[in-house]
Design a binder for these strands. Structure first.
Lengths: 294, 294
DNA sequence: TGAGAAATACTCGATCTGAGAACAACAGGT
DNA sequence: ACCTGTTGTTCTCAGATCGAGTATTTCTCA
């Protein structure tokens, strides 16, 4: 960054190069993959595009960065607030981090557009409001979405889901008039979503961020459900319980217990709060992933 | 991304918004943190700025993205090739990955500039050539550099131009004559470098990328030296050796042994090649890092 | 030729992990 | 109320892994 177009011309040309208008036009946007847990399923916030291109298609919420007026993180936070209609207070409980930037030529048919993608983990949020240029916005189960699912090959780098994972996906991806499920996403958003899921799966391993999907007070089984849903595989209840309580700073007891036992029986679970750890040590690793080689 | 500025105006305004000239001017660059190992020390490629702003300051190599003509990864690869003067063949042995994007307002005094930072791991490369707008370019030991050093706090979460980044502007880090060591970096490059080092340290844990710093054939002690230099701490030779050989796909034996023993004595070490693993399983974790909390 | 250093192999005890069992608490239906 | 099946939580046990320390052998250097 921070260099004139190229070539150490003379001073005049040098300064002239600073005229913004002389740069090839390029637009910068932020897109956000907002993940939340609804009724035990991982959902992503999608908006239906009101105009071309990809009119009628579902896409990730996002918008243009106000060049010079806001930073990237700020722009993402602003878009997140606008799109979810959440108060600043509620937003404080949402985890937001940069995912990566996408700028393949032609990804937007209108003009060169580079998008900085963000990833957000949110507790169960109210239904979104269709604001701005979106025809409507809604939570969509990730399962069955292109780019969704448990195993999305591609992953730039680390971890890719294993081929032999138990795939609880429903074998009924019908999309008659159902909302966004099983729809192609606009632009390269399927790729962004896939990368986001890979990142989310990895994050659960070494951070306590799974708690960001839950209410301030939660039980170990609820926490386990988050891991199972995002990783797409069942975990050993006993071992998971032992692990969570043994990692320093992961959770702290409230002394209370849940109001009711499980919906299908069982004793009432104890309640915990998120601890003060930012990183899990030792990490909570995903079961047997033989990959690595390839 | 991919939405008009905001607000569901009427169709006319909608279409008008597509004129590139109507968007606030913003420039997009790529900056690359190229790391290599020279004489046992971790070095980063820096260029001396030939013109303002930050004239005479050292900065990360980089340049403007050719909007619409190349993707982000392409642009980074191109800049890397230009700046190092390496052949396409030699570049194939270099690991290049996206680090994150930085777009704090005012990070470039000229105009809004967002930079997509990349991270590269390279084996010992020849001296760089000062091309383009750079007065000169050279490898600089990371130690002693602002943003360098072993302990750069900040970071549990990589990337993102956070608001509280050290802002090197305002001060006048004029160049006297000394190379780059102990100099303030231009723009927010100290922050980018710090983030890059954090990422590099983490990458060594779960990927075999340490081998990217070495020749095609290397010994276990040489590999250990890479880890020790980047992590900034001595490792137990015996345990490291056992671990490296036990992780499937990390290294594979060539059957040969090094020409000479260690410079200060000791038997000749066996030679290995990088294996076919992309991920280390189980990971090679850094010794005792009590952090996690706070 | 001797001393010191380093590569590699081994040992031992502390930890961590996966799998399974045990037991009590609880929901739902009879 | 009383079964019956489910589930939260705790334990046990064997195998894998890890940190630390030791032993052995092979080099370099003086």
């Amino acid at each position: 960054m921070s260099r004139q177009p190229a070539r150490p011309d003379d001073e005049a040309a040098f300064l002239a190069a600073y005229d913004p208008r002389d740069f090839p036009a390029i637009a910068l946007t932020v897109d956000i993959v907002v993940l939340t847990m609804r009724e035990g399923r991982l959902n992503v916030l999608l908006v239906e595009r009101a105009g071309p291109p990809f009119q009628g298609c579902w896409a990730l919420p996002g918008g243009f960065v106000k060049a010079g007026q806001e930073g990237l993180d700020e722009a993402a936070a602003r878009e997140l607030a606008e799109e979810t209609g959440l108060s600043a207070g509620a937003l404080r409980r949402v985890h937001l981090e940069q995912l990566g930037s996408y700028g393949a030529p032609g990804r937007d048919p209108r003009m060169p557009v580079v998008s900085v993608a963000y990833l957000a983990f949110a507790p169960d949020l109210p239904d979104p409001r269709a604001g701005g240029d979106a025809a409507r916005a809604q939570w969509t189960p990730v399962v069955g979405l292109h780019g969704g699912g448990t195993g999305d090959r591609h992953a730039t780098d680390r971890h890719s889901a294993d081929p032999h994972s138990t795939d609880p996906r429903s074998t009924d991806p019908r999309s008659t008039d159902r909302p966004a499920t099983d729809r192609e996403l606009a632009f390269d958003h399927a790729q962004i979503l896939a990368d986001a899921l890979d990142r989310a799966r990895a994050k659960l391993e070494y951070t306590p961020l799974a708690t960001a999907f839950l209410a301030p007070e939660f039980t170990v089984p609820e926490l386990r459900a988050v891991y199972e849903e995002i990783w797409g595989e069942k975990l050993h209840p006993g071992n998971f319980h032992r692990k969570v309580l043994s990692v320093p700073g992961f959770v702290e007891s409230t002394g209370e217990t849940a109001e009711r036992g499980g919906s299908r029986g069982g004793p009432r679970a104890r309640l915990y709060r998120a601890g003060d750890a930012r990183l899990l040590h030792p990490a909570l690793l995903r079961p047997d992933r033989e990959e690595g080689v390839r």
